[in-house]
């Protein structure tokens, strides 16, 4: 199979280029894209990419495969390959450090901006805070985010305003805490989001929903935040 990989080493390359590699795949086995990269790296150790858990829970190997963002470790080659060719690029919209490795600083900064931790100043009892299964169910589809950045880097609004628009991943987390019955900082959280960029730059394009490897729905969460902002304003 022909694999076209994005290559860039800041020390030796003046500009990035696509490298074509012919990879022989084992018969009768549908490899994941990460396995293919590992095969390439066995021959050419200079290829750089991040990987850790290889089962889709750590979020290290977000990349762009044949035009769509996803996790290389849980994307079968057969699912993305087009005309016998696999094209692998780094996540779009972030500076490339080397090859498939991007600088995620701005992504993490937007995550941290929403204060992604429980805020509750009431003294805790000697046991856990109670939460009904129904209240807890509101966190499903929110807390599972793995910070792989597939969503935010597929979002045009995030491409245009990465400094000001929180982006789908950050907003999903913002809502995860707004929706938590144990959190007491709802008003402060909403105040910090009530500007024309942070939330409202979401144009409902829904690329985030289409690429999320965990099947989460940031657009829906953003809708909930907007509703909360609206009902707070009226």
């Amino acid at each position: 199979m022909l694999v076209s990989v994005y290559r860039y080493n800041p020390e030796t390359d003046r500009e990035p280029y696509m490298q074509n590699v012919d990879v022989s795949l084992p018969e009768g086995k549908d490899l994941m894209v990460l396995d293919v990269l590992n095969l390439i790296k066995e021959k050419d150790q200079s290829l750089s990419y991040r990987r850790s858990c290889r089962e889709g829970v750590c979020g290290s190997d977000g990349m762009n495969m044949n035009g769509k963002n996803g996790l290389a470790c849980i994307t079968p080659v057969s699912e993305v390959v087009k005309n016998g060719k696999l094209v692998v690029r780094p996540l779009p919209g972030l500076p490339v450090v080397r090859d498939l490795v991007v600088d995620m600083a701005i992504f993490y900064k937007q995550y941290q901006r929403v204060k992604p931790y429980l805020q509750n100043s009431s003294p805790a009892s000697g046991r856990e805070r109670l939460q009904s299964p129904e209240e807890r169910a509101k966190l499903d589809g929110l807390y599972e985010c793995i910070l792989c950045a597939c969503c935010s880097t597929s979002c045009p609004s995030f491409w245009w305003n990465p400094e000001k628009f929180v982006g789908p991943a950050g907003l999903l987390q913002a809502y995860r805490f707004l929706a938590d019955s144990r959190d007491e900082a709802t008003d402060e959280r909403l105040s910090e989001l009530d500007d024309p960029f942070s939330v409202f730059r979401c144009r409902g394009i829904m690329n985030c929903v289409s690429v999320c490897p965990k099947g989460l729905n940031p657009t829906k969460a953003i809708g909930h935040i907007r509703d909360m902002l609206l009902s707070r304003a009226t």
């Binding site: 850790s52 750590c58 979020g59 290290s60 793995i146």
Partner: peptide, 10 residues
């Protein structure tokens, strides 16, 4: 690795 990529996550 970035902390949330550690193996505890699995």
């Amino acid at each position: 690795v970035f902390p949330t990529r550690s193996h505890t996550v699995s």
